[in-house]
Design a protein around this nucleic acid. Structure first.
Length: 346
DNA sequence: GTTTAGGCTTGG
């Protein structure tokens, strides 16, 4: 019979350079795993505990599932076998036998370990640790609190925000850009940019009813996020971090040559890079945020798809606008580049 | 037995 290992945890204020230790902390900054220039994915975390010491952590693992499952600031992370590395200040880097478990940071919610390892140590002391850290974090006014993500109904132009949503469809635009068509069941008060692509390059439903279309945000993800987007299956629930709402207007020639119409819209871009934690994460269906989303989305009806035989890109003003003009800018691939071939107002 | 990165945006 084996004896259950007993782990001891070092407070972040007592780290000794060179030692290999176990720690608990509250996440105050994080980046989803991204491909390093070496062989591994790299996660970046900043954590804090009751000693009020903020410590940066860098995790290298080849497999994505071995990385910390952090969904938002305030999550609690437990790491085994990290090395205290002296750099500018001190930081933690994973070492041999590294393992990590994370927990929701909200006081009063279930203490459910998030991990993909089949066997991991978890006992009453761990439960107490998590509860103590939650309570402590909640009492710290300066910590980034567990903020809800912004629903589409509350998005303001020009902001960066985190969006919790369901992926309905996706389509490659070019090698550096992929379109993700998402919704969260709420209606954005701003006109959303419409991006329409050919049905045959779309994965997932190619088109939706007009009512549904008005609820769909077209998110353009670039560069390093294209590879992540490639793995996503329509239907999954996502959190997109540091998404940017870009206001724009499209100038389109009117029906008479002297007129032109300006139509405002809101576009969503996930720029390349990982600054400010930019990235995409799949959320498990049982997470509280996804449960909440399903309550909204469940109210909405699905209608039969319409026929969209062209490749287009344009803006549709809010249908509430009595002077609504539907603009269709038709683009096509010419020499592998997306080119405008036909602007027209209907 | 240890390369990778070492937060900090802005465009498409």
């Amino acid at each position: 019979m084996s004896i259950a290992p007993k782990y001891t945890y070092v407070k972040l204020g007592n780290l000794k350079a060179g030692s290999v230790i176990n720690v608990y902390g509250v996440v105050v900054f994080f980046k989803q795993p991204f491909k390093s220039r070496g062989t591994d994915f790299c996660s970046t975390l900043k954590i804090i505990d009751q000693s009020n010491q903020k410590i940066g952590c860098t995790i290298f693992c080849e497999k994505l599932e071995d990385h910390p499952k952090v969904f938002q600031n305030g999550d609690i992370v437990r790491m085994h076998r990290v090395k205290v590395q002296p750099c500018k200040s001190i930081m933690l880097v994973n070492t041999f036998g590294f393992s990590v478990v994370t927990f929701d940071g909200v006081v009063g919610t279930a203490v459910e370990p998030r991990t993909s390892s089949r066997s991991f140590h978890f006992d009453q002391d761990d439960r107490r640790m998590v509860e103590e850290l939650r309570t402590w974090a909640a009492s710290q006014a300066v910590l980034p609190t567990v903020t809800a993500t912004v629903p589409l109904s509350a998005v303001q132009p020009k902001v960066y925000f985190d969006l919790t949503c369901q992926l309905l469809a996706k389509a490659p635009i070019d090698t550096t850009c992929t379109l993700l068509r998402v919704w969260d069941g709420t209606r954005c008060p701003h006109t959303l940019l419409k991006v329409i692509v050919e049905p045959h390059i779309t994965e997932g439903q190619a088109s939706f009813s007009k009512e549904r279309e008005n609820l769909i945000a077209n998110v353009l993800v670039y560069d390093n996020h294209v590879e992540v987007a490639r793995q996503l299956k329509p239907g999954v629930f996502l959190r997109i971090y540091n998404l940017r709402a870009i206001p724009g207007s499209t100038k389109v020639p009117g029906l008479t040559s002297s007129q032109s119409e300006e139509v405002d819209h809101l576009a969503f871009h996930l720029h390349g890079g990982t600054s400010y934690g930019r990235g995409i994460r799949v959320l498990p269906d049982n997470s509280p945020d996804v449960q909440e989303l399903k309550r909204y989305s469940g109210r909405l009806k699905t209608n039969a798809p319409a026929d969209l035989p062209f490749l287009g890109y344009g803006s549709v003003p809010d249908s509430a606008d009595p002077h609504a003009v539907i603009l269709v800018l038709v683009y096509s691939f010419v020499n592998n580049k997306l080119s405008l071939i036909l602007p027209k107002a209907i």
